Simulated scan of single mutants.
Amino acid sequence: MYPDLALRTVGGSVVSATDESFAAKENLIVPGPPVFDPTTFGHRGKVYDGWETRRRRTPGHDEAVVRLGAPGIVRRIVVDTTWFTGNYPPQAAVDGRADDEWFELVPLSDLKGDSENAIDVRCDRRVTEVRLRIVPDGGVARLRVFGEALPDPALIAALGTVDLAAVENGGHVRDVSNRFYSEPQNLLLPGPARSMGEGWETARRRDSGNDWVEIGLGVESRIAVVELDTRYFLHNAPARAVLGTAGRTLVDTDVEPDTVHRIVLQDPGPVTDVRLDIHPDGGLSRVRLWGTPTEAGRQALQTRWHQAH
């Protein structure tokens, strides 16, 4: 379960586009699925929740450049043409940028209209920007750039104690029991949630079990402080939370609604991944795991950094 490195809430930005006559380029990276109302028209024509260029009358193609919020190794691209039926581009390609050099991530490929066109990427270079090329013109609802964030080892070292679960530091969700209302990757996004919809919320359980999420840290670390944030979850926060790793319980605590819980750990030992069990169900806004990389973690990150350049 790779995070979307281009997502606006991760820090992504659409820095340029050759044309956006019908719909704005910024729509490419907003969270959530695109929406559509067949009755809405504006001065530019039909209102679309996506990026749409004018009909080309000359040779060429249109393109948009997206700066990743969390630079890293791209594993999968989704060119989402949902709701674009008679005005989608028949083909698209995606390039990556690293060290001021553009290179191919996805070759020119056929697209389907009103579809999530998913393409696996086989490239181990660290990417900071992507360029979507649509041929010759048309509309794309969303561009998703799924992958593994690769932070700068020098920055991690200089910062000292950091959130090793954060997407920008390589944190990622490995598995989850339930994602009925919202995505578990939201737990690891930068900044505080601005509403309940920006957290992770499960369906109401009607059995004797509980929900859980498994989180991989960016590097092997020693966690000093665990932060469990239930802000905006007023009547649907979990009653209890248990955080553990490799057979060890790190935190076992009652949970209050609409509250930031911070728990100091005593000698937790090296950690590479954790499992958070919430009892019995409900939602959280954010999970923060503040700590410092171990020596093995620092060396592993340094090795990955050099291999990706």
Results as ranks from 00 to 15, higher is better:
residue 18 T to K: 08
residue 11 G to H: 04
residue 288 R to P: 03
residue 261 H to T: 03
residue 190 P to F: 06
residue 234 L to M: 11
residue 27 N to E: 11
residue 224 A to R: 15
residue 18 T to N: 02
residue 306 H to A: 10
residue 61 H to F: 14
residue 287 V to Y: 12
residue 82 T to M: 10
residue 209 G to A: 13
residue 233 F to H: 03
residue 31 P to T: 00
residue 73 I to H: 07
residue 3 P to H: 03
residue 58 T to A: 13
residue 217 L to K: 01
residue 242 V to K: 12
residue 243 L to Y: 02
residue 186 N to Q: 08
residue 4 D to V: 04
residue 209 G to P: 00
residue 146 F to L: 14
residue 15 V to F: 05
residue 179 R to D: 09
residue 63 E to Y: 14
residue 160 G to C: 13
residue 117 N to I: 03
residue 2 Y to P: 09
residue 155 L to G: 07
residue 101 E to Q: 15
residue 234 L to H: 13
residue 89 P to I: 09
residue 285 S to G: 14
residue 156 I to P: 03
residue 119 I to K: 05
residue 240 R to Q: 15
residue 278 I to R: 00
residue 44 R to Q: 15
residue 2 Y to I: 02
residue 55 R to M: 07
residue 162 V to A: 04
residue 300 A to W: 08
residue 288 R to H: 15
residue 119 I to W: 10
residue 232 Y to E: 10
residue 227 E to L: 12
residue 185 Q to P: 04
residue 232 Y to L: 07
residue 301 L to T: 14
residue 246 A to G: 09
residue 232 Y to Q: 03
residue 33 P to A: 14
residue 79 V to N: 04
residue 174 R to G: 08
residue 143 L to W: 13
residue 87 N to P: 09
residue 239 A to S: 11
residue 123 C to T: 07
residue 308 A to Q: 02
residue 272 T to C: 09
residue 2 Y to G: 01
residue 275 R to E: 07
residue 274 V to F: 14
residue 39 T to G: 06
residue 81 T to V: 07
residue 20 E to M: 11
residue 91 Q to A: 14
residue 158 A to H: 08
residue 16 S to M: 11
residue 179 R to Q: 11
residue 265 L to E: 10
residue 52 E to Y: 10
residue 41 F to Q: 06
residue 177 S to H: 10
residue 211 D to E: 13
residue 219 V to L: 14
residue 132 L to Y: 04
residue 224 A to Q: 13
residue 58 T to E: 15
residue 15 V to Y: 00
residue 137 D to F: 13
residue 172 H to A: 15
residue 295 E to F: 03
residue 215 I to V: 15
